[in-house]
Nucleic acid binder design. Sequence first.
DNA 1: AATCAGCGTGAAAAGTTCGTGAAATCTTTG
DNA 2: CAAAGATTTCACGAACTTTTCACGCTGATT
Lengths: 222, 222
Amino acid sequence: MKILIVDDEEMIRGVLREYVEFEGNEAFEAADGMEAVRLCRENDYDLVLMDVMMPRLDGFSAVKEIKKAKDIPVIMLSARGEEYDKLFAFEIGVDDYVTKPFSPKEVMARINAVTSRHRKSEVRENKTLKFEGLEIDTLGRNVYVNGEKAELTPKEYELLFYFVANNGIALTREKLLCDVWGFDFYGDDRTVDTHVKMLRGNLKEYRKFIVTLRGLGYKFEA
Amino acid sequence: MKILIVDDEEMIRGVLREYVEFEGNEAFEAADGMEAVRLCRENDYDLVLMDVMMPRLDGFSAVKEIKKAKDIPVIMLSARGEEYDKLFAFEIGVDDYVTKPFSPKEVMARINAVTSRHRKSEVRENKTLKFEGLEIDTLGRNVYVNGEKAELTPKEYELLFYFVANNGIALTREKLLCDVWGFDFYGDDRTVDTHVKMLRGNLKEYRKFIVTLRGLGYKFEA
DNA sequence: AATCAGCGTGAAAAGTTCGTGAAATCTTTG
DNA sequence: CAAAGATTTCACGAACTTTTCACGCTGATT
């Protein structure tokens, strides 16, 4: 996992980096909010550890800015005595809140909790899922390819949604027919192929996410 | 069997070592969680006996870390009065839980139970199986060789999966044809050889896991 | 050392699966 | 009810997989 550490104190960044890397993650650093926002726009991180008090752009403003562009989980770090910020933090979409001084173990536990929770909620919640330039607005049932709306038929949308909900999992045609079409569907396996073809056509360059598994079926992999 | 004993008290390590070696196993020691994690990354143990309370890195965090890299069975040891940890322990993948003070017989019985149970569950679960740098993601049907994806054909994957599911067991060509190809396969025995050849080619240096048994067939051994 | 069954290998033949377009059927909507 | 749109079926060809087979090497046995 790629984790961005945002704090103006180099020592704190160092400590966090050590623990993040110990757990087998990749650590990146930013010294203030401005830098954090820029880096988040340019790269895909799996999590951001964000200090509140920073020069140039504070943690809250940075989070607000980042959440506008991408839905990355954020854990905020704050010094004791700033707890009144907590409610406001959750309001703007912060996923967890840790008060300094924190134990590394505590931070790592929260990181794991947040990322696993985030992964699960992503699909079920009414959030917009993003895979590079492919966006799926589950609430409005809209799909955007590089910002442009893709006109999917109902089946195409359901198929895509099912694929996304099972990201990385191999799916047989039988399983797809059973779960997307319904257990009572009596028909040709190859119906799936045709729908995959149409869906791929509509996803343009992001057709690459739908991988064919020869002899088996398909898989969404992003 | 190679068993790693993790406890900060040297006396307890000594007692456990005695039990373990008495039963004909090889014992290794670590004095804290950090050391345990490091040793587990570098070596292949068949079981870890892990104390909960330790300096530097506690037992729970160590287990979580170890389970990320390798799927080694773990038995946790805790002092009486810490039983509330039990649920959490199973959540993070601890296989059994023993409360101090324990009898040697009890510990050995649990060790045997855990290792045999573990062997069976390993394959059928939806886990990523790891054998050194060879990883098999059974959910996504991906195989990685030193982190790089190996492009296996369907039969190659099925054959590999069958081999892995029967790790350490000698398999005749007839058995392989019957179980991987299907009982109704009428064809040459030597078909197996060709597929083994291709599979070996794709596994690169891990071809070593597929052992030829002259006059018999093949065996996966990792 | 000679023999020989058993195995690894490469290449060619046979077989399978998938992507695609087009036509047929079913559903929704005006 | 007609038209438009969505879904399903199906057959073709391309791409890929599987199987067969013959040659040469290996290592066990005499």
